[in-house]
C-alpha cells in the first residue's frame, strides 16, 4: 500500500459530505448487499435461532422431569413437545447431540438436567450402536459445546437471532434464494426450545449415511467398556429413585441390517445387562419408520415415533405416578 496521499485531503468533518465519502459509500452499499443476500438465504432455519438453541441446551440445569438422551438420531427423532401431549404435565427435554457417545461426562450432564425436586425423574436413553463406540476420530458436539466459554454462551443466547442472519452461505445459495426453481431439494430445519431439531427433506435424498456408517464400522466396534460404564450409571440412578428407560432408536431397514451385521452390537446381551442394572427396556419395531438420509428420522416420522414412545412410557409410568 502506498503512503497516505494528502493531496486530496478534503479535511471535511466526518458528518458532512457523506455522499462523496468513499468509506461511507462502500459501507452503505455493503450494508444493502448484506441485507439483500442474507434475506435471499434459501430454506432458512425455523424456530429459535441455531446458536441460541445449542447455547441454551448445553446450559440446562435441574429443569426437567424427563431427559431424552442420545446422539443425532435422538436429537432429530424425538419431539418432547409431541410427547408432552401424551404425558401431560411433564417437563420433557431432548438432550441429544450430534456424534454423541455415552461417555461418563455426558451421563453426568444428563443427570444434572433432571430437577432433583421433581417427583417423577426419568431418563430415557435412545440407543444406537455408534453411541456406544469409542471412536478416536469423534469428539462429539457435546464436548465442543461444553468447551464454549461463558462469554460465548452469553453471546449466543442473547445475540444469536441477529448473528444467525450472518451465517455462512455461498453465492450459489443466494442464487437459489433468488430463483427458487433452481432448488431441486429442500432441507428444512426447525429448532425447538425443548431441544428437538426437526429435519425435513423434500424429496427424501439418497441414503448417504449408510456409506458413512459402513466405513466407520470397518474401523470401530461397540465398546464393552462403554456399555459397562453406562450400566454403572443406570444402577446408580435407579438406586437414587430415577427411572431409566431405554430403546433402540429406529432409523431405516438398511441401517438396522448394517448395524446388526457389522457394529458388534448384541442387543439381547445389552438388554439383559441393562435390565440387570435396574433399567427398563422398551421394545419398538426398528423397521416401522423410515429415514430421509439413511440414519435420521424426518419430521413426520419423528412425530409419529414420539407419540409411540410417549404412549409406551405412559403405560410404564402410570402406576407409579398414580401412587
Amino acid at each position: 500500500m502506498p503512503p497516505i496521499d494528502s493531496k486530496n485531503d478534503t479535511r471535511r468533518p466526518a458528518w458532512t459530505g457523506l455522499v462523496r465519502d468513499r468509506t461511507f459509500r462502500a459501507l452503505s452499499l455493503a450494508g444493502i448487499l448484506v441485507l439483500v443476500m442474507g434475506s435471499l438465504r434459501p430454506d432458512k432455519p425455523q424456530g429459535i435461532s441455531e446458536k441460541r438453541f445449542w447455547a441454551t441446551k448445553i446450559s440446562w440445569h435441574h429443569c426437567a422431569d424427563m431427559v431424552l438422551a442420545g446422539d443425532s438420531r435422538v436429537l432429530g427423532g424425538v419431539s418432547p413437545g409431541e410427547m408432552e401431549n401424551t404425558l401431560t404435565g411433564w417437563r420433557i427435554l431432548n438432550y441429544g447431540f450430534a456424534s454423541n457417545l455415552y461417555v461418563p461426562e455426558y451421563l453426568e450432564a444428563v443427570e444434572q438436567v433432571l430437577d432433583p425436586e421433581s417427583r417423577k425423574r426419568v431418563i430415557v436413553l435412545g440407543i444406537t450402536p455408534h453411541s456406544l463406540m469409542e471412536d478416536p476420530d469423534v469428539t462429539g458436539q457435546f464436548f465442543s459445546l461444553r468447551s464454549l466459554s461463558r462469554k460465548q454462551i452469553y453471546f449466543d443466547m442473547h445475540f444469536a437471532p441477529v448473528l444467525g442472519f450472518f451465517n455462512y452461505m455461498s453465492f450459489n445459495d443466494a442464487l437459489k434464494g433468488l430463483f427458487p426453481s433452481l432448488i431441486k431439494a429442500h432441507t428444512r430445519r426447525e429448532f425447538f426450545a425443548d431441544g428437538w431439531l426437526a429435519y425435513d427433506r423434500q424429496p427424501p435424498g439418497e441414503k448417504k449415511e449408510l456409506k458413512k456408517y459402513a466405513r466407520a464400522y470397518q474401523k470401530i466396534r461397540v465398546s464393552a467398556k462403554m456399555i459397562a460404564e453406562l450400566n454403572a450409571f443406570v444402577a446408580r440412578w435407579t438406586r437414587t429413585g430415577i427411572r431409566v428407560y431405554s430403546f433402540l432408536m429406529p432409523s431405516c431397514r438398511e441401517m438396522a441390517d448394517l448395524e446388526e451385521q457389522y457394529s458388534g452390537f448384541d442387543q439381547r446381551q445389552f438388554v439383559e445387562d441393562f435390565e440387570r442394572a435396574g433399567g427398563t427396556w422398551i421394545d419398538l419395531d426398528p423397521h416401522r419408520y423410515d429415514s430421509f438420509d439413511g440414519s435420521h428420522l424426518g419430521r413426520q416420522a419423528a412425530l409419529e415415533f414420539s407419540r409411540e414412545l410417549a404412549g409406551r412410557v405412559r403405560k410404564l409410568e402410570r402406576p407409579r405416578v398414580d401412587d
Partner: peptide, 17 residues
Amino acid sequence: EPVAVAVLILVCVFMRA
C-alpha cells in the same frame, strides 16, 4: 472502488470459514 470494497465485505460476511 467502493463497489469493489463493498463486494469484498459481502464475501467476508457470508463466505468466511
